[in-house]
Amino acid sequence: MSNLTMFSDELANLVEALSPGLLLLGGGDVHERTAFRFDDGHYLTYAWQADTGDEVSARDTSGAALTLTVAGFDPVSGLAVLAAPQSESGAATVSPAPRHATVPRVGELSLALAFPSDHGIEARLAMIRCVGKSTVVGMGRSIASYYQTDGRMHRGFAGAPVFSCSGDLLGMLAPAGRGREDLIVPAGELSTMIERIKRGDADSRAYLGVNTQAVEEGLLVTGVEADSPAAQAGIRTGDFLVSLHDTRLSTPEDLWMLLSSRSGGDVVTVKLERGGVPQELEVTLIGLDLEARKHRRGRGHGRGGNRQGRGGRRSFEP
């Protein structure tokens, strides 16, 4: 038997061993998506919107129907933690801990597994092409590191676990936004995010609601989100932001750093120029988590209305 045949057999055996830890979520009027087991009682997935206590329909690889409950949701990153039924047994335990202390080398192979439809498990083998530092996922959740592979994954792999060839969890595939490449959230970052979600910590970092661009004249406002703190305070597209609470602004990064040091509920003074005339506005900031929830709710309405679960509760939406 050739080395290549042995390697192929080992990969197939690995897929078979890890597949029982995957679930197919949704169906009917809810988009289907993969969830994977990360400890004895919980699964992890990405969702567009969810409320703690929502019930989620799922199927395992044997075809058995399950009902899980949302244990926590981070609207900024889109990660949802699902509590597995106590009666379920036999699924492979997938913990985010095994590999989070070891960064993979560029050139190593990785194995992504997904359960995106009734057609069954899908697998993608790809090479780690990049180990990067500091980026954001979702609507602004900062992570200290990330991985990328040389293969593009289709939509069904969003939220899929990615393993090393020894079966250790490397991380989770984050949904790629328009014009953005797929990236893997490392297992160590997942551990931190999961604990935050399970504690129910809110992200109180401040949100203003403007798009900006550095130009020769200063920091130009290129867009203002409707109903945002900026819009309510009277900031308009075409304004030049001069300072926020007496700290001068020159780049979008300056604004980002200042907002990161503020919290929802803070009232700040924004100095700007409009048509060459200086102006000063008071702005009441809101928390990023509140804005993320509002944005996700709004998109949910645009995709077919306010989906309702049991008792009138908005249902989980992958």
Rank of each mutant, 00 (worst) to 15 (best):
S2H: 10
S2L: 00
A17I: 02
L24W: 08
L25R: 08
L25G: 07
G26R: 06
G26E: 09
G27R: 02
G28Y: 07
G28C: 00
H31K: 09
H31V: 04
R33E: 07
T34H: 06
D39R: 10
H42E: 04
Y43R: 04
Y43Q: 10
L44A: 00
Y46E: 03
Y46Q: 04
Y46D: 01
W48S: 09
W48G: 07
D51I: 08
S57E: 10
A58M: 01
R59K: 14
T61R: 03
T61M: 11
G63A: 11
L66Q: 12
T67E: 12
V70A: 06
G72L: 07
F73D: 02
P75I: 04
G78E: 07
A80H: 00
A83W: 02
G90V: 10
A91M: 10
A92L: 13
T93K: 13
P96N: 09
P96Y: 08
A101C: 04
T102Q: 10
V103F: 04
R105A: 15
V106E: 15
G107A: 05
L111P: 03
A114W: 02
P116Y: 05
H119K: 13
E122Q: 15
A126T: 05
I128R: 09
I128G: 00
R129T: 15
R129D: 12
C130F: 13
C130I: 02
G132E: 11
K133A: 13
G138P: 01
M139D: 06
G140I: 02
S142G: 03
S142E: 15
A144I: 06
A144G: 15
Y146G: 03
Q148W: 00
T149I: 01
R155S: 04
F157T: 00
P161Y: 03
L169C: 11
G171S: 06
M172S: 01
G177T: 02
G177L: 14
G177H: 08
R180L: 15
L183Y: 01
V185S: 00
P186Y: 05
P186W: 07
E189V: 07
R196N: 09
I197P: 10
K198R: 15
D203V: 06
A206F: 10
G209Y: 06
V210P: 04
V210K: 01
V210C: 06
V210M: 06
V210W: 05
N211S: 14
T212V: 14
Q213E: 15
A214S: 13
V221K: 01
A226N: 11
A226T: 13
P229C: 12
A231Y: 03
Q232G: 00
A233M: 11
T237I: 06
D239T: 02
V242C: 12
S243H: 00
H245A: 15
T247F: 05
S250T: 03
E253W: 11
D254F: 06
L255W: 02
L255A: 04
L255P: 07
M257P: 06
L258G: 05
L259Q: 05
S261E: 14
G264Q: 08
D266S: 05
V267M: 11
K271M: 12
Q279E: 15
Q279W: 04
L281D: 12
E282L: 14
V283T: 00
L288S: 14
L290C: 03
A292G: 00
R293E: 14
R296S: 12
G298W: 00
R299I: 14
G304D: 13
G305Y: 11
N306P: 01
R310Y: 08
G311A: 10
F316G: 01
P318K: 02
